[in-house]
Write a protein that binds this DNA or RNA. Structure first.
Lengths: 131, 131
DNA sequence: TCATAAACAGTAACCATTACCAATAAACAA
DNA sequence: TTGTTTATTGGTAATGGTTACTGTTTATGA
């Protein structure tokens, strides 16, 4: 008898999703907040966080996690790979993707391996010129 | 004339390194703190953080920054791959490693790609049995 | 139009990490 | 061994990103 919880398409949620889809920069929650505030000046940061989580859970956006630093979000949910700048944390899209080899041979004692993914590291242009 | 900064092998730094090498669990800073405190009860958490950073910078340990809210540390610096439990964040070592394909073809506009790495996700036994 | 409860704005709390500073102790020279 | 220098420490406060709380608003279906 568990009542299916409804989700409502609020103006806030819609604008967050739109802004995220209009951009290729993999913004942090705070950056999304800044973007969205231009259209909804009274939105609160908590609302941004809540909706980013909900949108990621429903599969409408991607949540890019890296331990200890800020999470980043991606409105492009088609499969692609990312580079992370080791200096500033900025994230970019990898164009010609590298094919992930067969991982069925991978074993880890005490773990059941479910998936694998290639992560790239590098330096973004801004940090490179700053060097 | 910049004076080369010396680094001193303190008791605290040595015990942190030893404990980390004695263990295969990829502990968080807080877990390292707990381990080390059994031998040095008066050590402070700040000292643990500071030394973990210094040891990682000198290449004596690894700092694992892959997803989760806390960073984890590894006393085994020989090249190997990791799995992360998506439920609890625990990290394990992958035995037969999957060879990373040639990544020289990978392009990312605005980035200089320097390295690539395969990251595994899965479930640890504790979480699997809890399911 | 009304009733319901999901979602909101605003703010406080939380937690991992970093910064600060007076006191301590490695390391090296005398 | 003793003294001097200064990197490092313990203790604690501050920071920054994220989450939780609460009374009010508003999307949604009757």
């Amino acid at each position: 008898m568990t009542q299916q919880q409804q989700t409502r398409m609020t103006k806030q949620r819609m604008v967050i999703l739109e802004e995220l889809r209009n951009v290729h920069s993999h913004p942090t929650a705070d950056e999304v907040y800044g973007m969205v505030r231009q259209r909804l000046p009274r939105i609160s940061l908590g609302t941004v966080y809540r909706n980013l989580d909900l949108l990621a859970e429903s599969g409408d956006i991607l949540k890019l996690e890296s331990a200890g630093s800020q999470k980043r979000f991606d409105g492009n949910v088609t499969p692609h790979q990312h580079v992370r700048c080791t200096q500033c944390g900025r994230v970019g899209d990898v164009m010609e993707p590298v094919r992930l080899p067969d991982i069925t041979g991978a074993r880890a004692p005490g773990f059941i391996i479910l998936s694998g993914r290639i992560e790239f590291e590098g330096v973004c242009e801004a940090c490179a010129s700053k060097n």
